[in-house]
Nucleic acid binder design. Structure first.
Lengths: 211, 211
DNA sequence: GATACGATAGAACGATGTTCGATCCGACGC
DNA sequence: GCGTCGGATCGAACATCGTTCTATCGTATC
């Protein structure tokens, strides 16, 4: 059931998941789903945790190298998982502290931080910061494209170009920053953008850990 | 209309905003709203941008001091605005690149970054990172508390204590990190947590800017 | 063969976003 | 004063969705 739920979410986005479509795909009745799950929220929680299991498996071997580098590896893996599943980002921010695999992921990140020379509070803040940054950036970058793009009317590049064009038409003196990054944005790569920010955060952490 | 929309969102959360309640509060009919707004999404976009205007006004005077400190000031202001309006976080990640006040906020942040010795790409990445971190952390920390807490059945502190208790019952050898931060988490303050992470990010940025 | 219980099915309900046609109201021309 | 037109308002009606409820099935157990 969770597999089919995830498939539906991947194919039609968060809005495409409803009980009737899911029941149809499972070849059963609508009411049957409630035997296994008490609400749609629980279904989404379970589906999220189901996907997190894959992330967890992917980072199972991490832990041997430099602690900060290992933190980066885990963060990148989590980022990749959320970026191509926009619905995961939204639901990762709910009940994160209770869902079993989310807890395990926190623990895995935390264990790298344990190898750094930090106070308990600094460690707590560091891990929270990494998770916050990953989830926030991934949810932002992975946001569902507007309907015109989704329906194939306009290309994604065209859409980006159109927004940038809008920036360029703003007053150059009042918006010097937007003008400067217009070119940058048009050619930007989401993953690069994420990694650059993550590296800033981790550089700050390395500094704090005195290494 | 936007004022009433924001009031409804503040009072009853995102789920409490519906067209019938809004129409009732405005003393009009349901259909009338569609004369001013073409969909609920647009209503939420407009309401978000409406609130962002206040944030923008609050940081209008920022810009005289140390660039990184000014970045921090703006980030903290934005964070505070999102934390006590959970719905704002969710909708800040949509259409951020088109809504006028969101653009102005990007510009304001970017103008501080313009005073740092960075390449255009580094600047773009830095501002994106700050926004991603602020929005992600604020949305995470400001998430709607579960129904039991909202209805007043259990205290917020009791709820936190219960989650921590759950952590403590995990195997201490398999979950050393969660055990270490249990005390930390029980007494933690959201704003401190955010600022500590932000300072890590900004420390990394300062390092990159060679200052 | 009767009973109990895990499991399934789908009709019905209430809430919500949205559409649609009817209606109101004030300005304007004559 | 009357008629007309377009901006603005209203609420009934529709489609969709999550959820509830009750009837029913299938199988293990006595």
């Amino acid at each position: 059931m969770l597999t089919e739920t995830v498939a539906l979410l991947d194919e039609h986005g968060e809005a495409g998941l409803n009980f009737r479509a899911l029941a149809g795909r499972l070849g059963g009745g609508v009411g049957s789903i409630y035997w296994y799950v008490s609400s749609k929220d629980e279904l989404l929680d379970r589906a999220s945790d189901h996907v997190l299991a894959d992330v967890l498996a992917a980072v199972a071997e991490v832990g041997g190298g430099d602690p900060v580098d290992d933190l980066r590896t885990i963060a990148v893996t989590l980022f990749d998982a959320i970026v191509d599943r926009p619905w995961l980002g939204a639901y990762f921010m709910r009940n994160t502290l209770v869902q079993p695999n989310a807890l395990r992921l926190f623990e895995t990140l935390g264990q790298q931080a344990l190898r750094l020379d930090l106070t308990a509070r600094q460690r707590f803040h560091a891990v929270s910061a990494v998770v916050g940054f990953v989830v926030g950036t991934a949810a932002d970058l992975g946001q569902e494209p507007p309907a015109e793009v989704l329906s194939g009317e306009v290309d994604r590049d065209e859409y980006l170009a159109a927004t940038v064009e809008q920036w360029r038409q703003l007053d150059a003196e009042a918006f010097p920053y937007l003008h400067e990054i217009a070119d940058e944005f048009e050619a930007h790569d989401d993953t690069d953008q994420f990694r650059a920010g993550l590296d800033l955060l981790l550089a700050g952490l390395r500094l704090q850990a005195g290494g």
